[in-house]
Every structure is written in C-alpha cells, then in structure tokens.
Design a protein around this nucleic acid. Structure first.
Length: 403
RNA sequence: GUGAGAUUAGCUCAGUUGGUUAGAGCACUGGUUUGUGGUACCGGGGGUCGCGGGUUCGAAUCCCGUAUCUCACCCCA
C-alpha cells in the first residue's frame, strides 16, 4: 500500500469541517480590518529564504525541501509565508508606490523536520502582513485582530509580549548578554555554549532548568531599549490595556533573525504539548530592505492551523437539507428526479435502494437532514408527498410538482 | 540529528509462561409483518497481527533490522 509521506496528512471529514471553519472565520475578520488576500507560489528560488532567514542557521539546507529543478534552478518549497509575500510586494513595486498595503494569506508550508505534536512536514498557516505603517498603533491593531480571531473560534490563550529593540539598542544588548553568559563559566549547558556562537539571544529560552537559574539576573532586553523603542513599547501596552486585551511581558521571548525589531508577540495555549505557541508575530522593519526593496516598515503574524485545530470550538451542528427515500424499486427514478430538481436550492441526500420506512429515517438522521420525504406507491398514485420536519416533527402534504 | 514508547478489524482496544480456526465494543450491512423517529433483539461481511529477516516442532507473543505514529530534545522562519 502506498502511504502518504512522513509528516504529511490528508485533511477530510471532520478535520476538513474544522479547517474550513477556521479559514472562513479568520478570513472574515481579516477583511474587516482591511486586509486583502494574496496568493504566492509554493515554490520559490532558494535564495529568497537564504536571504530572509540567513544562511547560518539550521533552517536553510537542513530543514527546507530544497532541490534543483529541470532548468537547473535552485528552488525550494516555502517553509513560511512572509518571505514570499514580501518578495511579491517588492516585485509589484508597491514599496516604491508608497502608502499602506495589507495582505492576508493561507496555505501549505513545508519544513523537513522530525514530526511531533502540532508539528508536521506539510502544515498550513494563516497569516497577515501590513506594509508601510510605522505607527505602533498598527502593531496593536494586528494583535487585536489576532485576538479577535482566536476569541471567535473559542480558543483560550495567553498573550506574551516583548520588545526586541532596533538596530540602535539590540546589538549593544546582545553584547552585554554574551558577556554575562560567558561570566557564568562552565555551569551552562552544551546547547547554550553552542548558542553563544550561533544565536546568543536564544540562550534566554533554554529549557535547561540549571541555565534558567543562572540567567535569572541576566540583563533584560526591555531594560536596555533606546528611547524610541521604549516609548513605543509603553504605547503598545497602553493601547492594549485601553482595548481590554490582557497580556504578560515575557522578557525571554525572542526571535532568531536580524530583521525583527521592536514588537514581538506570541499567543500560547496551555492546552497543548510543548509546542505551545499557536500564533506569533511582530514588527520586521528591515526585511523589505534585506530583499532589495525600498525600506518599508512592516508588521504581521502567522498561525499554524493544525496546532489550533483541536482547540477550535465548533458551532453546534444543525439539521439541514432534505432526505428522500424510495419505498419500492419503481419509486427510485422519481426520487432521483426530485432530488436533482431540489438540489438547485438545497442539500439533498438520497439512497438508490428501496427500503422500508424505518431504515430510511435512520438514514435521514445519519446525515442530519432537516426534512424527510418518502416515495412509495401511494405517492406515485396521488402525485403528492408528505414532507416531515424532523426538528419540530410537523408534517405537510404537498403536490409533487410543487416540490 | 538525539532519546523514549507504540503499531492486532474502518475506529478504540483485549489477546495468559510461545501452543488448535486471533476476540470484544463501536462503526458498516441485512433482517426482526413494506408507512412514522435514533436506544432493543437476531444475523452478515471485514485481519498477510506495520513490513522484512531470524530462533523454534510451532511466533501476534522471543531476537535483529526497517517503516510509520506518538512524546520530548535540537531547531523553530
């Protein structure tokens, strides 16, 4: 038997119901905030992601589906959504056009990783990107939109906030952090020793308890912000408070990549495993420039749909549509004809086999039909039919031609 | 990439120290007087016990390999 590849799932039946319910909800809300859909290719030039995430990390090479295509182009399946949207933004010269541009997207992403809870090789993200606004009001609005989506879906969350500083204050902070960690001597774990070389900021969210104790008095990013970053962070908190959004400051919330600045946030759930982040985002004022565009401020978020799936509270299932059953063979073709007519306006379920009443009504219950009709010899003779409402149990006799 | 646990019917799982023809519940399908509601009763179909080797008179059961799933680490754009 041929099976799907590791970490790649089919979405059907109940999962599909949840999946589309999520997308419908998120789409409606994004549109209310003035966002427009953007579709970008699943396949991009590898250099796009090398440039955006940087070549040094594990990400490029190890965790991307990368290959040489038949035209000898170095390409890869997109591992995230932001880079493609930014590329499209620049390619369409919207950076030069100026003004604000707000996009939302959703679709499959690919990462060659060892699967675990809420972490697949092919997974789906929904995200938004806002270009051209440097006001911290936009950061707050993006957060509030995300909060709206989660609340509408009945998903409980905690919002964690941090500021990553900017090109003024971040490099200095990084230096002082490295100095501090080196001062801890041999006590730190092997992973942190490596992080000092590869990605020093990441020591802050080391899961080793010993390290966490050691870093308790490490310099905090939010205490090292320059004036502009500090003011914006204070404003952000104020705006969220004014709008009734609860948050907590997590000084260990970091991003590995250089192009992030100022606002960083994560929505986490306590109801799933170690992969507790359900959505994350922040400001990335330098990415457009990194990808050869005119410098343009930007802020956005992305959420992993699979990780949210089991947390979504689905609306109650309501009865819908018609079930038409045939009592005997002669009635089957009439049932088919009636169904075809009615399907112009309603959902209709039928069975091609003649069955007794009880079996048909079982079938109607199974598909959650709202109306139940039977065709037998009486109906054919009189050209009438009883339509039964399975919710309130009322019945109505109608002429077949009026159905 | 590292570590741990799992894999038996469509699903959830039993299966004794290795021993006849591998079971249950749910689901599916049909019937229980061919016209009014799901629950009751009776029947039916459905398994290469993940896959490949090995040990043994004999393997779902023991050993080795491998795939996949789950969980955690690494990483997390």
């Amino acid at each position: 038997m041929i099976k799907s590849l590791r970490g790649m799932n089919d979405i059907l039946s109940e999962d599909y119901e949840r999946f589309t319910y999520f997308l419908d909800t998120a789409t409606k809300i994004a549109q209310k905030y003035g966002y427009h859909f953007i579709e970008t290719p699943l396949l991009e030039e590898t250099s796009l992601f090398k440039r955006s995430v940087g070549e040094s990390s594990d990400i490029v090479g190890k965790e991307m589906y990368q290959f040489i295509d038949k035209g000898e182009n170095d390409v890869c399946l997109r591992p995230e959504g932001t880079a493609g949207v930014v590329r499209a933004f620049i390619q369409k010269k919207l950076d030069k056009a100026g003004g604000t541009h707000r996009f939302f997207y959703h679709g499959p992403m690919f990462r060659y990783e060892r699967p675990q809870k809420g972490r697949l090789r092919e997974f789906h993200q929904f995200g938004v990107e806002s270009f051209g606004v440097d006001s911290v009001y936009e950061d707050a609005t993006v957060i509030m939109m995300l909060s709206d989506i989660l609340k509408t879906l009945g998903i409980g969350y905690r919002l964690q906030l941090n500021s990553l500083g900017d090109s003024n204050c971040m490099p200095q902070y990084r230096e002082s952090l490295v100095k501090f960690v080196k001062g801890c001597g041999d006590e730190i774990c092997e992973d942190c020793i490596r992080r000092l070389e590869t990605n020093p900021i990441r020591v802050l969210d080391c899961k080793n308890e010993k390290c966490q104790v050691l870093y308790k008095d490490a310099p905090k990013l939010i205490n090292s912000l320059c004036d502009s970053c500090d003011t914006d962070f204070a404003s952000l908190k104020k705006i969220l408070e004014d709008n009734g959004i609860d948050y907590e400051i997590d000084t260990n919330l970091v991003r590995g990549l250089d192009y992030y600045s100022k606002t960083a946030f994560e929505f986490v759930s306590d109801n799933i495993g170690s992969q507790s982040a359900i959505a994350g985002g922040g400001r990335y004022d330098r990415l457009v420039e990194y990808l050869d565009g005119r410098p343009t401020p930007a802020v956005g978020f992305a959420m992993g749909i699979e990780r949210l799936m089991e947390l979504i509270e689905m609306p109650e299932i309501t009865r819908d549509g018609y079930y038409i059953g045939a009592m005997d063979e002669e009635a089957v073709s009439l049932v088919v004809n009636l169904a075809q007519k009615k399907r112009k306006t309603d959902k209709v379920t039928i069975d091609y086999k003649a069955k007794n009443f009880k079996n048909h009504i079982k079938g109607a219950d199974k598909v959650n039909a709202k109306f139940f009709c039977m065709i037998g010899s009486n109906e054919i003779q009189n050209a009438t039919m009883t339509v039964k409402n399975l919710e309130d149990k009322t019945e109505q006799i109608i002429n077949l031609k009026d159905f």
